[in-house]
Structures are given as structure tokens and as C-alpha cells.
Amino acid sequence: MQSSKRKLWITFGIVVVVYLIAMVFPFFWVFVTSFKTSGEIFGTGAFRVIPKEPTLQNYITVLFEKNILNSIKNSLIVATTTTIYIIVVATFSAYAISRFHFKGKNILLGLILAVSMFPQMVVIGPVYNLFENLKWLNSYAVVLPYSTITLPMAVWILVTHFNQIPGALEESAKMDGATTFQTLYKIIFPLAAPGVFTTAIITFISAWNEFLLTITLNPNAEYHTVPVGISFLRTQFEILWGQVSAATVIVTIPTLIIVLIFQRQIVSGLTSGGVKE
């Protein structure tokens, strides 16, 4: 018994270690490459773990010539704006869905679920034409169609959270003469804050990672977000892996910080949105 248990532990240990290596290795290797010179990357030093002549040139080029900071700025603007308005809009409707009876509630929920399943490709053509007519191409107006990806998910997670808050509190608030909006602000919001916060982080990450809408609606490099900006470092004829690596390291840092600080909220948001509790 004792030895079979030890075997099991060893197997578990191996699985966990292999898994951790598989997850981390790509980042590690890109990090190493970012300090190598072009000569070393394309020459015999391609597979050397420690760069022979470590250089910061890749970082300098990417930061000051390739304007990666502008992409990060755009991503911050776009992701923050999206998060704020989506959270406001989604909180209102999730509260109504969770607390009130109304005709067509199931249809609305079905619709929200269906929209989250749409291939984004289906909305892009007409939205492109709409933006062209309104002269909104190459602007931050791109945050509006971001609602297709983020809003259904936000409503869905928030409804789950609101359903966990007992309704009795609101009943007593109502008896004391509070209006619906007062109840929402004074009672529900403070109680739902953790859930709202979780939803905000998930929304922020999905807006940060969006690719298709930005590349089609904002072809001008001045409005490129991080994913689109970085994809343009890969040109058809020459790929400067040193710069690509440096850029990857730089843009991974914000994501890393968010994950390290908010991992609990992210996991709770992911599981409440995707799994029956």
C-alpha cells in the first residue's frame, strides 16, 4: 500500500513538473532570445541558452523605433474604455434579469448566449461599412463593436453573481421606500462588488486581446493595439526574431502583472461563466 501510494505521488510529481516546463519554456526561450544579436540568432548560436554577447539593442529598437509603446497606450485606452462601459451596461441588465419577472426573459438570455457563439467574422463586413460611412475608421470608436465579444460574457457572469445575493435585503430596502436605482446603488452594488470586479478583469483581458476588429477597422498603425501592432513585426520577407522576442517580453509584462495580482478573481470569473455551480 505504502509503495503504491509513493508511486502515485511520483507520477503526479512528474506530470506537474512536465506541465510546468511545457507552459513556461516558450516564454523562457523568447526571453533568452531577446538579448541575443541577430548574428547569434541566425548563426550557430541559435540554440545557446546563455547569449554570448548579451545586448539590449532589440529592446531599444522596439521601444524607440517600432513604437511598441504607442500600441500599449492604445490597448490601455481601448481596454479600459470597453471595461467601464460594458460593466455599467451589463450590471444594469444582469440586475434586471436576476431580480425581475418579465416577458421574453428566456428569449433574452437565449439571445445573449447565441450572440456569444457568433463567429466574429459575421459582423465585421457590415460594421466596416457602417464605420466607413460614419468616418469612424481609424479611431477609438472601435470599442463599440467590442461589445459583441465582451457584453454577453459580462452579463452571463454577473447574472450568476447576482443570483447568489439573497433577495430579502432588497425587500426590506423597498419597504423602507428605496427606489429600484437606490436599491441597486446602495444595497446590491456593495454586495456584488467582488463579482463586478471579477467581470471587469475578464472583460479587460478579452478587450486587450481582441485582434480581428482592430486590424480591419483601424488599419492605420497609429491606432494599432498590442496584438495587431506586434503581428506587423512579422513582415513577409524578413523576420527579426530578436525584435519580435523583445516586443513579446514587453507586452507580456502587463498581462503577467494582472494575472499575478488578480488570479483568484480570474479563476472565479472563468468558472462561474463556464461551469454549472
Binding site: 507552459m23 516558450p26 486581446n209 522576442s245 498581462t255
Partner: peptide, 20 residues
Amino acid sequence: TTSLIPWAIPTAVAALMWSY
């Protein structure tokens, strides 16, 4: 923590990393 990072980075960044 380790599991969340691949999920959280933009797909375009992951794709570029793998293309290298």
C-alpha cells in the same frame, strides 16, 4: 498562476512566439 498566463496573453502574441 502558470496556467493562467498562456490563457491571458493575446492569441496573436502566442502565435508569434510559436512561429519563432
